[in-house]
Design a protein around this nucleic acid. Sequence first.
DNA 1: GTGGTCTAGACCACG
DNA 2: GTGGTCTAGACCACT
Lengths: 113, 113, 113, 113
Amino acid sequence: MPKTDLLPVLLPDAPSPLYAQLTGHLRSRILDGTWAPHSQMPSESELGAMFGVSRIMVRQALGYLQKAGLIFRIHGKGTFVSRPTAFQNVASLAGVGEAISRVVLNRVGAGPA
Amino acid sequence: MPKTDLLPVLLPDAPSPLYAQLTGHLRSRILDGTWAPHSQMPSESELGAMFGVSRIMVRQALGYLQKAGLIFRIHGKGTFVSRPTAFQNVASLAGVGEAISRVVLNRVGAGPA
Amino acid sequence: MPKTDLLPVLLPDAPSPLYAQLTGHLRSRILDGTWAPHSQMPSESELGAMFGVSRIMVRQALGYLQKAGLIFRIHGKGTFVSRPTAFQNVASLAGVGEAISRVVLNRVGAGPA
Amino acid sequence: MPKTDLLPVLLPDAPSPLYAQLTGHLRSRILDGTWAPHSQMPSESELGAMFGVSRIMVRQALGYLQKAGLIFRIHGKGTFVSRPTAFQNVASLAGVGEAISRVVLNRVGAGPA
DNA sequence: GTGGTCTAGACCACG
DNA sequence: GTGGTCTAGACCACT
């Protein structure tokens, strides 16, 4: 009787880590245009204050978004949205976009070994 | 609390589980003011060392105390005594107290810029 | 067996972050057989003590090694070397090796949640 | 009252650079014992706020004091006064003192379980 | 004044 | 008693 019928709904019982939630929130704001492409996002500290989490969690979430090609970061300058919405599904291209943007805005940075 | 070797048959023969004893000890220290309301308790590891039990036992005991509204825990921060003795029976309100305390504690340490 | 002398001298003028140095040290010990394939490595805390760094730096270094397929980690059990030296250059296969090792050592993460 | 655009070419018009003044202030506080030997000084941000200067100026001044052997800095921990007045002229030894202090400080908080 | 590295130590989830 | 998540706050490198 109790047997759930093939859940179409995603079971929300799993709490999911904070940084995962935060990643989702940030991604939404990028996709919905709150932060426009190539515009500077709020600083890591500000994002931490906005969402009530520590800076380390912000950095972890931003790291995911960077890996996904949605944003790129420039040391000493800030964090930026990388590409327009139309390109967001093409993750592999976004990576290229990031590299180009980095060069354009400043210069290449050294990745970790 | 002395050990009674003669147990009435109605009770389980085990001399009360370890975590129950520990829960009693911790509750006593909270009620007698050893750990003041809203003050931070020793860490789970320290409590384990203090009472000579494993951390899993400590967590089980703390879980009881939390459910009873005597304490609340903040991830990454610590375990805290929730309210003065007078409020200890109102478990449901204590939950609210926890939520408020959490916000208060968060905000104290997190000034925006 | 010493390191491959294939690569010309890497310019060592950059101080290189601590976690990068640590990653190198750990990789060396894996490659030289200090920690044998499929054997359990020291815990994160022990590695921190061994190298005089914080656990977070250890985790960062282990994260790199995991991404490179040299190790895999099992929650609640430990960190393990993933594959023999002969396979270390084939990073893509190492991922498969990890999956197999998980099954061999214990079992699959059974419940699909 | 007039803006002197007639500058004597030999001397700079600025009455000693900002960081030199700051360096003097900080040195005074160290020598008069405001910050005791081996005690932790205020953070770079706090010092900037205390003296109304930017953090970059603070870092420049601290760099001088470090080179002079009056202080040493530990990444992720803080800035510390290095030695009593009697030793302040022996800059080279202060470097050794720093190294030792680092180990000592590290070991205090990092028991091998 | 940003992002980058690092420390110390808490609670959480799993075995 | 492991690895996983999270906090708070320090100094560092760059602009």
